[in-house]
């Protein structure tokens, strides 16, 4: 019910998330023009949580919060904050903005902003096999060991997946999500 609890203000974002990608209905151009790239990416980030299974050890108990962390300079702003007030699969969401690299493993989803490009190898090493879904916005993110990386195809937001990295961390990424990825690393 997470989506249903999204506030009225987040509606344009949702529409953008759902319709971005040149799906040819006349009303769409207007909607597409009204939403920004990061509005879409925020929605994607939020939706990823629904297609990923964390190992039971990643949560203290079944009522523990699902923690989404944003490391570096926040490109999303208000839309993501509004999305993060919802709930996924019975878990409430919580959003943290991180400055430094401490407690990275306490996150369930870690968005690494472009500003952290240089610190990326270290971040990934730090996390190693911790059950944290790493999502990046930097070219080569998945090659370096990141799990999901946003890419742009024209104006359309898409993503690559590094399934090996996710498996190492004990995360299961739904095949339906994989089916939508542009590239999947580690696919047989």
């Amino acid at each position: 019910m997470a989506l249903l609890r999204v506030s009225r203000k987040a509606l344009p974002l949702f529409i953008a998330a759902c319709w971005l990608g040149g799906f040819g209905l006349p009303g769409m151009a207007r909607a597409q023009g009204a939403v920004s790239e990061y509005d879409v990416k925020a929605a994607f980030l939020f939706n990823f949580t629904k297609f990923v299974e964390w190992p039971p050890a990643a949560f203290a108990d079944e009522h523990s919060l699902l923690k989404i962390c944003v490391l570096g300079e926040d490109p999303f702003g208000k839309p993501l904050r509004e999305l993060a007030t919802g709930e996924v699969g019975g878990r409430r969401l919580t959003l943290k903005y991180l400055e430094n690299l401490s407690h990275l493993e306490s996150c369930h989803v870690l968005f690494v902003c472009r500003s952290e490009r240089d610190r990326l190898p270290r971040i990934l090493v730090d996390l190693h096999t911790a059950p944290v879904l790493t999502v990046g916005d930097t070219p080569g993110f998945t090659d370096q060991g990141g799990m999901i990386n946003f890419i742009l195809e024209g104006t359309k937001v898409r993503f690559d997946v590094n399934q090996e990295a996710a498996e190492r961390a004990g995360l299961k990424i739904s095949s339906r999500l994989l089916a939508l990825a542009k590239h999947v690393k580690g696919r047989p």
Partner: peptide, 14 residues
């Protein structure tokens, strides 16, 4: 069941 992802990520082609 097979349409959850495409709906979530707005991929009408898929």
């Amino acid at each position: 069941r097979n349409s959850t992802a495409v709906l979530s990520f707005g991929d009408p082609g898929s």
